[in-house]
């Protein structure tokens, strides 16, 4: 898959999920959703591809996910049934601290 870049967008090959990269790392990594490599938006994906049962917790719109070593962070911009993973390791959901509304 192409190198991750801040601002770059990817979609899942096996579910409706889409993400945007918030923090990228210099390393070559494999970003997967539902156990399958993520692809550039607009890429045709094969019908009938399945979410891997070990990567099936799903991602929620507006939630941010970080890699275990906290070097990569992505934002879910479309919800999906697959879970995100970096080099096979599941990403963790990051909490946004609730702040007072100021604007």
């Amino acid at each position: 898959m192409p190198k991750l870049k801040t601002g770059g967008r990817f979609k899942s090959a096996v579910c409706a999920g889409e993400i945007m990269v918030v923090t990228a790392s210099e390393d070559d990594v494999v970003l997967t959703c539902g156990g399958a490599d993520m692809v550039a938006p607009g890429t045709e994906v094969a019908d009938g591809a399945q979410v891997h049962p070990d990567h099936a917790v799903g991602i929620a719109m507006g939630k941010r996910y970080i890699s275990e070593d906290e070097t990569i962070e992505v934002l879910c911009v479309k919800a999906g049934d697959g879970s995100l993973a970096v080099n096979g390791q599941l990403m963790l959901q990051k909490d946004t601290k609730q702040l007072p509304k100021t604007d």
Partner: peptide, 24 residues
């Protein structure tokens, strides 16, 4: 730049956190 504004929003606002009847 887009990165400044988007960073500000992502770090300070929870997506879809406003109840439907909220008005500002």
């Amino acid at each position: 730049r887009h990165k400044h504004l988007v960073s500000y929003i992502l770090s300070s606002v929870e997506f879809a956190s406003a109840p439907e009847e909220d008005a500002s």
